[in-house]
Amino acid sequence: MQAAAEKKVLLKVDHLKQYFPVKTDSLFKPKAYVKAVDDISFHLYEGETLSIVGESGCGKSTTGRAILRLDEPTGGKVFFSGQNILDLNKKEMRKLRGDLQVIFQDPFASLNPRQTIKQILNEAMAIQNVVEKPNRMSRMLELLGYVGLPAEALDRYPHEFSGGQRQRIGIARALAVNPKLIICDEAVSALDVSIQAQILNLLKKLQHQFQLTFLFISHDLSVVRHISDRVMVMYLGKVVEIADKKALFDSPLHPYTQALLSSIPVPNPTLKRERIMLKGDVPSPINPPSGCRFHTRCPFATEKCKAEEPALREMGEKHFVSCHYAEKFR
């Protein structure tokens, strides 16, 4: 681990908001919005892996897409290498896209079924023009080597590969443009556990080899524990807790994080553990609860939680929590 002072911030997300309008029943009702991501701020250091965890619908994938401007954010700023990328025009943005890449969850859906692997890799290089034309063939073979696929793969179509192999192709495609940051949106969730481990180890190896920075979006805490340096927990479009992996897994301070962690299965049937069961469902993000968004399900909620929205407070070294009573849970 590098010393804190040496770390350089690669990506800084500042008060990011992503609202989606929803259809209302009546013409006269005011327009309603799903506040998928509601005013969140965080940053990513160069070369680290920050994981975003949370239940379905908490806004973790939306955050990833908003950073990439695949959906145009409603508000906020996204600084990449010091530059607010939301200010860039289309042309500048296209140029920058070489630095920001993405790997999606479903390896069956993320590759165009009508392109061979060669075309897929070649297109990526051609757009960003990272490799001169005569060198592209050797570069493609090199990329396949990095992700552990044979050279024969080039002339085949995505459907001829297994899930794990396709995800390797997705990774090779992302690497083709020499990115700095790769957003892995549930990159291993669709794979078998044994394949998950292979892909995670591959990602780690490549991160080391090419000094990549990962924003790793996942709902699977065991995966997150394996790959992350730091972890950010989201609930209903808000950041609930951010900390180093060890701090977060060893001493979670937010009741929601504690509940999440208590749900990880432990491979020891004799071990007795306290399972925190949450009541009810996640409330609708159209009309999120007032105050602390978690208060409707929090076993410790008080009147203050209903009225006042907690700020993200630093409780330990680089350990931020948004709970009024974080001190109590230490």
Binding site: L70, K95, S110, L111, E123, I127, R173
Partner: peptide, 11 residues
């Protein structure tokens, strides 16, 4: 997703 990927590539 491959359309998103294409957008992410800067196409």
């Amino acid at each position: 997703d491959y359309i998103r990927t294409a957008r992410a590539k800067g196409l």
